[in-house]
């Protein structure tokens, strides 16, 4: 799709098929975009704060630097590029983020309960106080990210890379770290009851105030 997009038509919900559309730097805050087809669309730099993107198709879309704070993103974001996005307080419950690129994104206080993030890149993300319960993070790269106070209970992090990640005071109850790399990670006072660390690399990790510290 190469013709100019009528932003007002998007805002009032007239356009539902926007696959491959170029909608970068658009003002779409608070818009109802639920169920809209946005596969492969370019939305980089757009303001989508508090937008409703529930059930939207955003696979392969480009959302680099977009403001998605407080947005309902219970959507298909498979392979989407969300680098440097503002996802503060966003609703990503059960979202499909497999293989997505979230490098440097701000996910402070976001809800990722039951989200699918296997193979996703979350390097340098801010996930402080995020709700990541039961999420699938197998093979994800979360190195150098800030997960202070995050809730990762029952999350699956098998084979994930968490090198130098900050997990201070995180809830890691029954979290599966089998084969994960936690080298030089900060686990200060993390709650590890029932966590599985079989085969995990904890070289240089700070385990003070945890069950691993006994």
């Amino acid at each position: 799709m190469s013709q100019a997009i009528d932003i007002d038509a998007i805002r009032i919900g007239k356009l539902k098929q926007l696959s491959g559309a170029r909608i970068d730097d658009a003002e779409l805050s608070g818009c109802d975009l639920s169920g809209v087809q946005l596969s492969g669309a370019i939305l980089s730099g757009s303001n989508l704060s508090r937008a409703n993107l529930n059930q939207a198709r955003l696979e392969g879309s480009n959302l680099v630097g977009a403001d998605l704070s407080g947005a309902d993103l219970r959507a298909n974001l498979w392979g989407a590029n969300l680098m440097q996005c503002n996802l503060t307080g966003a609703d990503l419950r059960g979202a499909n983020l497999r293989g997505a690129n979230l490098m440097g994104a701000n996910l402070t206080g976001a809800s990722l309960t039951g989200a699918f993030l296997s193979g996703a890149t979350l390097v340098g993300c801010n996930l402080k106080s995020a709700d990541i319960r039961g999420a699938d993070l197998r093979g994800a790269n979360i190195s150098d990210s800030n997960m202070k106070g995050a809730d990762l209970s029952r999350a699956d992090l098998q084979g994930a890379t968490l090198t130098e990640a900050n997990l201070e005071e995180a809830n890691l109850q029954e979290t599966n770290f089998t084969g994960a790399s936690l080298a030089r990670a900060n686990l200060l006072c993390a709650y590890l009851e029932g966590a599985i660390t079989t085969g995990a690399d904890l070289t240089g990790a700070c385990k003070t105030g945890t069950l691993l510290d006994l």
Binding site: S129, D131, Q173
Partner: peptide
């Protein structure tokens, strides 16, 4: 969470 980490 039994540990209330302010994840809320």
């Amino acid at each position: 969470p039994l540990k209330m980490t302010l994840s809320t």
